[in-house]
Design a protein around this nucleic acid. Structure first.
Length: 278
DNA sequence: ACACTGCCCTGCGAGC
DNA sequence: TGCTCGCAGGGCAGTG
C-alpha cells in the first residue's frame, strides 16, 4: 500500500524519467471512474498538449505539475501504479489510463482494486488540497513541540490520529504500526496522555521509519512498484506490521497482540508498548 | 470531537 | 483440485 515513502519513490523516479515531457494524448480504458474530477472529457481536454513541469508530493498524493498551472493529483490508495513504459510494453488487465508522451513513451495508470483516483486541480484547488492535509512529518520546520501540542489537544487514540491525514500527512497503517513499535508507545493511548518526551520520541520514530523506508525504495508487500516498475526493499526490514497475532516480539519475545483501530488491523507488543494503568 | 458502519474493489489464503 | 468465504485497507459519507 503506497504511503509516504512509496509515493516519494514514485515521485523521484518519475521526476528523473519524465519531467519536461509533454502529454501528446490521453487514452482512457473502460474504467473512467479512476478520474475523480473533472468529467473525463474535460480532464482529457485540459491535460492534452500540456508539458509536465515537475513531480511533487504532499502526504500520499503524487502531484503532477503542468505548464498550464493545473496539477494532476494522483492518489494510488492500495494498488495503484503510475509507471513509464515503452509503447510496446504489454498492458495489464487492470490498466485504466495512459498519458502518451511526445517522445513516444507512455505514462500508465493501473490499479487492481480500482480505489486509486486522479484529480485535475486548478491552482486554487491544489492550494485547498494542501490546506486540508496535516503537516509533513519530514519537514524540518515541524517541531516536536508542535507535534506534542497537536497531540495534547486531541483525545482520540494515537494510532487513529496517525492515520488521520488531516492531522499528519503521509503515514498509513504500515508505518504507523512500525513507528509506534519503535517508540514503545501503545497504539490505544489517548493522544493527550502522551508526555512531551513521548511525543518527541514518537515523531523521531516516525521520521526514522519513513526516511529508512524511502532509502530502501519503499515497502512492496505485493503490488507496490515505483515509476519505473521496480519493487521496494523495505519489506525485509519491517519489525511488527507483517507479524501475526501470537508471533514472538522481535525485541522481547512476548506474543504480539492485534487490535482494530479506526478499522485498521493494528499489531503491537504488550510488553514493549505498555498501556499505563491509571 | 469522536466512534462506528458501510461502501468501494479484487486477489489471495484458509477451510472444506 | 476446486469451490466458497472472509479478510486486507485509504478515504469518505452517513449516523449517533
Amino acid at each position: 500500500m503506497p504511503e509516504l515513502p512509496e509515493v516519494e519513490n514514485v515521485r523521484r523516479s518519475l521526476s528523473a524519467a519524465v519531467a519536461g515531457a509533454t502529454i501528446a494524448a490521453v487514452r482512457l480504458g473502460a474504467f473512467t471512474g479512476c478520474i475523480a474530477a473533472p468529467a473525463p472529457d474535460e480532464f482529457v481536454a485540459r491535460v492534452t498538449g500540456r508539458k509536465i513541469t515537475g513531480f511533487g508530493r504532499r502526504g500520499k498524493y503524487l502531484l503532477v505539475a503542468l505548464d498550464s498551472g493545473d496539477t494532476i493529483a494522483v492518489h494510488l490508495r492500495m494498488t495503484g501504479e503510475l509507471t513509464v513504459t515503452s509503447p510496446e510494453a504489454p498492458t495489464g488487465k487492470h490498466h485504466h489510463l495512459t498519458f502518451v508522451l511526445d517522445d513516444g513513451r507512455e505514462l500508465r495508470f493501473s490499479d487492481t482494486r480500482k480505489f486509486g483516483r486522479l484529480t485535475l486541480l486548478t491552482r486554487d484547488e491544489a492550494a485547498e488540497l494542501d490546506r486540508s492535509l496535516g503537516p509533513e512529518p519530514l519537514d524540518d520546520r515541524f517541531t516536536a513541540e508542535r507535534f506534542a501540542a497537536m497531540l495534547a489537544a486531541r483525545s482520540r487514540t494515537v494510532k487513529a490520529l496517525l492515520l488521520d491525514q488531516t492531522f499528519l500527512a503521509g503515514v498509513g497503517n504500515i508505518y504507523a504500526d512500525e513507528a509506534l513499535f519503535a517508540a514503545g508507545i501503545h497504539p490505544l493511548r489517548p493522544a493527550n496522555s502522551l508526555t512531551l518526551s513521548e511525543a518527541a520520541r514518537l515523531l523521531d520514530a516516525i521520521r526514522v521509519t519513513l526516511a529508512a523506508a524511502i532509502d530502501r525504495g519503499g515497502t512492496t508487500l505485493r503490488d507496490y512498484r515505483d515509476g519505473l516498475g521496480r519493487p521496494g526493499n523495505n519489506q525485509h526490514y519491517l519489525h511488527i506490521y507483517h507479524l501475526a497475532e501470537g508471533d514472538p516480539c522481535p525485541r522481547c519475545g512476548e506474543p504480539i497482540a492485534r487490535v482494530v483501530v479506526a478499522q485498521r488491523g493494528t499489531r503491537f507488543c504488550p510488553r514493549c508498548q505498555p498501556l499505563p494503568t491509571l
